[in-house]
Each structure stands twice: as C-alpha cells, then as structure tokens.
Write a protein that binds this DNA or RNA. Structure first.
Lengths: 199, 199
DNA sequence: CGACACATGTAACACGTTACATGATTTG
DNA sequence: CAAATCATGTAACGTGTTACATGTGTCG
C-alpha cells in the first residue's frame, strides 16, 4: 500500500508522468527500495480507476501526465495524518526463522545466530558507510536530508537487530541445559499441538 | 517467501495437515503474524507442485497429511543456513512516509512526527505488556521461549523506531531555518528533478 | 438445537517482481 | 554508429488478503 500512497503524494505536489514518478521516489529514498517502472504504470492505472488521479493530456512533450484529484488529495492527507500502527506489524523473516529454528530439532540455532550476526554486522557497516558518504555532500537540499534520514532508519534498525541477536544468544545459553527443545519428544508421542491445534 | 519456508520447516519436523500447520506456526509466533488458512492450502499445493512435499494419504482420521521430500529437506537446510541479508531490505512504510513528508510542501512534518511517536510508544507498551505476561508463565517449553523472543524483537524494533523518530525531530529542528523544503520552489520554476529525472 | 471450532478448499483481487516489446532521444 | 537512457506499456507469475462455500464434530 505504500507505493500507491507514495505516488499519490508525489502527484499531490505536482502533476507528473510515470517515469518521472519513479525518479522522484528513488531520489528521496536513495534507491534503497528500488521501484519497478512497470508497477508505476499499473499503479497509475488503478489510481485513475479509483478516481484518485486522472490523465492530464500531455505536457507539450508527449508525456502521459497524471494529475491528482480532489479525493486523491483527501487520501494523501489521510495517509500522512494516520500513524503507522502495530496492528499487523510486517512479518519479520528473521524473527520467524529464528523462532522456528528454536522449536525444531535438526537445526543448529547457535550456528544460525552466529551466521546472522556476521551478516547483520556487514549490513550495518554498509549502511554506515553510505550514510557517511551521503552526509559528506552536506547540501541542504531536502531530498538529501530525506535520504540521510532513511539511511539512519536502516542503521537504527540494523543495530536493534544485532542487539536482539545478542539477546537471543544469551537467552539460549541460559536455557540450553533446561530444555531439550520440547518437553515431550514429538517423535515419541503426539504433541499437545498435534492433538489440540487451538490455543 | 517466509511462509513457504516456514511451512516446509514445520513439515521437516513431522508430517502434518493444513489446519495443523497454521496452529503450529501461530503457536510459535504467538499470533503476532496471523496466518490465513486459505494461504496454507495454496502454499501446500505449490510445495507439492515443486516437489518439496507430497500428500501422504491420511492419518487414520481423514486428514490431508503432507510429508516433506528429500529436496524439501535440502531447501529447509538451505533456508536456515542462509542469513537474511540487506540486499533488498523490506520497505519501511514509516521511513518512506517521513521521507516524502519532508520533501513535499503541504505536509506538517512535526505533527506527523508527534502523532507517530505517540502511536509508536503505545505499540511499545503493548509489546512490553504482552512480553511481561508471556514471561509470567515461565515454562521452559521451547514454544513459549520462541514466542518471548519474537516479542523481544518487536520491542527492540519499536525502541529503535522511537529513537529514530527523536533523531528525526532533532534533525528537523536543526535544519528548519536553513531550508524552505527545497532550494528552489517547484511552484516558481521547474525543479532539477523535473528536468532531469536521472541521478 | 444452535453456536462454535475443526477442516478443506475456491475465487477474486491487490500487490510485487521479472521479463519482454517497442520506440525515441542522447551521448560517446 | 553503438550503447545507454528515456519512456510507455503488457504478460506471466508468486505472494498475500478477504470472502465465500461446504461439511463434520463437539459442547452447552
């Protein structure tokens, strides 16, 4: 849903054509989340279908320009006004993976944690380096500022991830001797979960 | 891709039927990321199509049981062995929204930050409370442990988000007087971005 | 009996990615 | 001229959500 709203927000600023929308989007997010051009066009189709934007003839250069409508503006205002909430937080693949790894046999959790920590550290370093380079230009262009803040969010997120991994490793060390994964071996007798899938 | 791998990982542990797979998944992640039952069945279809799992007759109770195959097991091992990397980090709606808000006119960024901070604090409190309750039972069941660690990841993430919001607010205060959003008003003359969509 | 959980699906739709097709313009 | 970039699309596919249909079993 973020792409749809993002494009609409950009159109709120000024009428644009598809290719330009992608450029504007990527300029602000520094290509962290590359935007497929095909999706831009299909999204524009849907926006027009839903009455949030309309084709605005050409701009004298043959471009297919879209313009936001009144209801489109309302939608944008609403989007910016509504905070991102925790109901349905996006799935965290790492958390899911680790959660499953801990509850299943045949998985070397410590190895997993170690490998992930290395990878996450490398990620953090990449972000930090990019951040340093982005800050070097030090222009006050608001787009550069936005790009830097996006990088900061990635840095903060990566740091939190690493802290969490350390936390998990501690947990594991503390509990390794008290649990052989499951109170009853699922191979020996049907687990509780097997018999009663409800919680 | 995480659902597919998750279900396969569960099947690696033991043969199961669809409804049961959902229960097992949600038990481990504490319903943080509710899993639609319809998706379970379609995913199982695809797993079978791709030769990673097969229907295993019934279990004497008329359930449609699936069993993992050899290539399925290989796939699971690979999944657990491969760390989650930063190439293509998942889109962060909040970061995108704030990034756009800062570069567009007609958006009250400070208001947005304030509203989001309130919401994020509330999220954090919710997670912390759930975490406290989950830890209360204090069983050594590995599934409870997994659920607690998932909650911890949410807590760590929410804390990072709040720190980032504060960071952004500071940035904004520091730069508010030096930039009127854009070096050249896009209403007055064509912006750089408009003329040159490339970077 | 009626409500609810269990259990298996299908259909429609939104979103996202990759790849392909097509042509104009720019640039080394 | 060749390659890259600009520019607009379409098609196929995977993933994910919501809603619907259908039937069984259990429990108050």
């Amino acid at each position: 849903m973020s792409i749809r709203h993002s494009l609409l927000a950009l159109l709120h600023d000024q009428p644009m054509y598809g290719y330009q929308l992608r450029s504007e989007f990527e300029e602000r997010t520094g290509s962290t989340w590359p935007l497929n051009i095909g999706q831009v066009y299909t999204t524009l189709d849907r926006l027009e279908r839903d009455g949030l934007a309309i084709k605005d003839g050409d701009d004298g250069e043959g471009h297919v320009v879209y313009r936001i409508t009144a209801s489109g503006k309302a939608e944008v205002s609403q989007w910016f006004a509504a905070p991102v909430v925790a109901t349905n937080p996006p799935r965290n693949e790492l958390a899911i993976k680790l959660s499953l790894a801990m509850t299943l046999d045949n998985v070397d959790v410590e190895m997993l944690l170690q490998a992930q920590r290395t990878a996450s550290m490398r990620n953090l370093q990449t972000y930090t380096r990019q951040r340093r380079e982005a800050a070097k230009s030090d222009s006050n262009d608001s787009q550069d500022v936005a790009w830097i803040l996006v990088l900061d969010s990635l840095v903060f997120g990566a740091e939190a991830e690493i802290r969490w991994l350390d936390h998990c490793e501690g947990w594991l060390r503390k509990h390794r001797f008290r649990t052989s994964k499951s109170p009853a071996s699922h191979a020996a007798e049907p687990t509780n979960a097997t018999k009663e899938p409800t919680r």
